[in-house]
Nucleic acid binder design. Structure first.
Length: 201
DNA sequence: TAAAAGATCGACT
DNA sequence: GTCGATCTTTTAA
């Protein structure tokens, strides 16, 4: 049978990212509908982990498309990416935020004290709500423990908005962040404390 | 409500 | 030894 997943993730990251909005990431009993993503190109993108060559951590980005690239941020947070565009070089789409649509009880146990809309509002939160670990790095999203599924009701492109990426120190001005306009689960834009900009000491 | 700083572990130079 | 595609907590207005 044909792989709808393969079609979904074919193309450069900037093209694939908005298409992932509305798709569902599933791990065990927990399923999250994506509402916010960011595109990361490999070459020529100072914001990408793949910029500057292959390293031990970003090896998954250089592998085949349709796999899960997990990394640890600030020692506490697990961030999840989907590798895309193998033939276009190392690229990935960062899963920034989403809405928990299944297994909400499980997700809430992992994040005590959070309201429903905060369960997966942010990359680190999303990773924790799904129960992801560094061990999930390299998982095949078609057959692995973590799956990426197409949404039954794809999000209308009319409500997709684009803007600058969040929290990067370099190349933060590129409008490669995509989110659904009408979703409360989208995280607010915050500039990196030490981002390169016009004002520099 | 908004802004600032702390936390904390693996990877990179 | 330094840095980080972040989140939480604290302090101030």
């Amino acid at each position: 049978m044909t792989e709808p997943l393969a079609e979904l993730i074919s193309g450069p990251p900037v093209d694939v990212a908005p298409r992932l909005l509305g798709a569902v990431v599933r791990h065990g009993a927990v399923a999250v509908r994506l509402t916010e993503v960011e595109a990361y190109a490999g070459a020529g993108d100072p914001g990408s982990h793949a910029f500057g060559g292959r390293t031990r951590r970003n090896g998954t980005m250089f592998g085949p498309a349709g796999h899960l690239y997990c990394y640890l941020s600030h020692g506490i947070h697990i961030c999840a990416n989907v590798t895309v565009g193998e033939e276009f070089g190392p690229g990935a789409v960062l899963l920034r935020a989403g809405e928990v649509i299944e297994g909400r009880d499980v997700a809430r146990e992992r994040r005590p004290g959070s309201s429903d809309r905060d369960l997966a509002r942010g990359p680190g939160r999303l990773g924790r709500a799904l129960g992801l670990t560094l061990g999930h790095d390299g998982t095949d999203l078609a057959v692995g423990a973590v799956r990426l599924e197409l949404s039954d009701a794809p999000a209308p492109l009319a409500v997709v908005r684009a803007g600058p990426r969040t929290g990067l120190r370099r190349a933060s001005e590129r409008p490669w962040r995509f989110w659904l306009d009408d979703e409360p689960t989208v995280s607010p834009y915050r500039r990196h404390p030490r981002a390169e900009g016009p004002e520099s000491p």
